[in-house]
Simulated scan of single mutants.
Amino acid sequence: MKAPSLALLGLAFVAAPSFAGTTVESCNRSVTFDAPPKAAISNDVNLTEMMLVLGLADRMVGYTGISGWKTLDEEMRAGVSELPELSEKYPTKEVIIGADADFFFAGWNYGMKVGGEVTPETLEPFGVKVYELTESCIHIGPKNKVSMQDMYNDLLNLGRIFDVEDKAQALVESYKAELATFEATVSKGETPLRVFVYDSGEDAPFTAGRYAMPTAMIEAAGGVNIMDDFEKSWATVNWEAVVERDPELIVIVNYGDVTAEQKIDFLKSNPAFADIDAVRNDRFVVLEYVEATPGPRNIKAIKKLAAGFWPN
């Protein structure tokens, strides 16, 4: 075989991509990457979709935390068909280390718990770097109210970490443009619609507060989360507060053993809720878990919310 010329070698050298290292902010930490991860794990369906939409499946050794609570739809099944689910629920430290992972994309209450065995600090000695979901940072310190920028921030940071920054930037710009076009054309009411997010729980409802992604999506669709002043992300409130604030529409988050239909039936059959405007007028919008949490389906979910808010 004829040896390549020095000129060709020089061209090859010039054309070869280089990664000079990058530092990203992850909650209250700065995390430096000397090279893009090659053996990543993502936890939860929405975080896994962020990896997939950036074309990073070939940089992953698996995912965790999906089948224990949720079901993969056809789109997600196709995306992860070549990847193993390493843990049905939150992974242990041994699961992550045993997979020879070098990166864990998770969040607080999205695969990690404050004071738990899997944290950035406990994984660091094993060479596993962690990037934390922006929405979840409220669990370990103060942050700004949730906005769509939280989701964009995660995609852009993943782009930097994995050296696909141009792809991440283009994707985020397309989401921003799509949302701006939609907001400019959708017909909204003169005043924001009062909306309550019902995730789960019968004795006391688990809902989205000021720092949870549905608050930002509801506002983009022309509504206001009645729990906007609740200084939490996803947390439990009492039914008395819901009745008192009288939502005009209730968003049902669909996942787990209790179906969206069963959640609606519970609300409609309980006499304590009979005077709630949304229940009285049968106004519900169902969002799948993957739509209600930060990820690539958020723009589509905003359009779904707006269609339910302003049907005419």
Results as ranks from 00 to 15, higher is better:
residue 263 K to I: 05
residue 302 I to H: 06
residue 272 A to Q: 13
residue 79 G to N: 13
residue 310 W to V: 01
residue 259 T to M: 10
residue 167 K to P: 04
residue 160 R to Y: 01
residue 64 T to H: 05
residue 41 I to H: 01
residue 230 F to R: 08
residue 73 D to W: 05
residue 236 T to N: 08
residue 52 L to P: 08
residue 245 R to H: 07
residue 128 V to F: 06
residue 87 S to W: 02
residue 263 K to A: 08
residue 138 I to P: 03
residue 50 M to F: 00
residue 243 V to G: 00
residue 305 L to M: 12
residue 195 V to H: 10
residue 282 D to K: 12
residue 235 A to F: 11
residue 182 F to M: 11
residue 291 E to F: 08
residue 100 D to L: 05
residue 72 L to Y: 00
residue 163 D to I: 02
residue 30 S to N: 15
residue 192 P to I: 02
residue 62 G to K: 06
residue 279 V to F: 06
residue 72 L to M: 15
residue 136 S to I: 06
residue 135 E to A: 02
residue 307 A to I: 00
residue 133 L to N: 11
residue 16 A to W: 14
residue 234 W to R: 07
residue 142 P to S: 12
residue 257 D to T: 13
residue 254 N to T: 00
residue 210 R to L: 09
residue 203 D to V: 11
residue 118 V to W: 03
residue 123 L to H: 08
residue 251 V to I: 15
residue 94 E to I: 02
residue 248 E to G: 15
residue 310 W to F: 15
residue 69 W to H: 13
residue 261 E to N: 12
residue 11 L to N: 09
residue 67 S to Y: 06
residue 126 F to L: 03
residue 256 G to H: 09
residue 204 A to Q: 11
residue 121 E to I: 07
residue 56 L to R: 04
residue 184 A to I: 10
residue 13 F to A: 15
residue 212 A to C: 12
residue 23 T to D: 12
residue 5 S to A: 12
residue 55 G to M: 11
residue 174 S to G: 06
residue 8 L to H: 06
residue 216 A to D: 13
residue 169 Q to T: 15
residue 96 I to N: 01
residue 297 R to Q: 12
residue 288 E to H: 08
residue 240 E to W: 00
residue 79 G to F: 07
residue 290 V to W: 01
residue 221 A to Q: 02
residue 196 F to H: 07
residue 258 V to C: 01
residue 96 I to P: 01
residue 104 F to Y: 15
residue 48 T to A: 04
residue 257 D to G: 02
residue 185 T to V: 14
residue 225 N to E: 09
residue 28 N to F: 08
residue 102 D to G: 08
residue 115 G to T: 11
residue 220 A to D: 10
residue 145 K to F: 00
residue 34 D to P: 08
residue 285 V to G: 03
residue 150 D to C: 01
residue 162 F to W: 00
residue 120 P to T: 03
residue 76 M to P: 02
residue 183 E to V: 13
residue 127 G to Q: 10
residue 177 A to G: 05
residue 124 E to A: 15
residue 32 T to S: 15
residue 187 S to A: 14
residue 309 F to E: 11
residue 82 E to D: 15
residue 24 V to M: 08
residue 13 F to D: 13
residue 158 L to A: 03
residue 302 I to E: 06
residue 127 G to W: 04
residue 35 A to V: 04
residue 255 Y to R: 06
residue 120 P to Y: 14
residue 265 D to P: 00
residue 99 A to I: 03
residue 242 V to L: 04
residue 81 S to Y: 03
residue 190 E to G: 12
residue 120 P to G: 02
residue 212 A to S: 14
residue 226 I to D: 02
residue 50 M to R: 07
residue 211 Y to L: 09
residue 121 E to N: 02
residue 70 K to V: 07
residue 152 Y to N: 05
residue 118 V to S: 03
residue 2 K to E: 14
residue 94 E to N: 02
residue 158 L to Q: 06
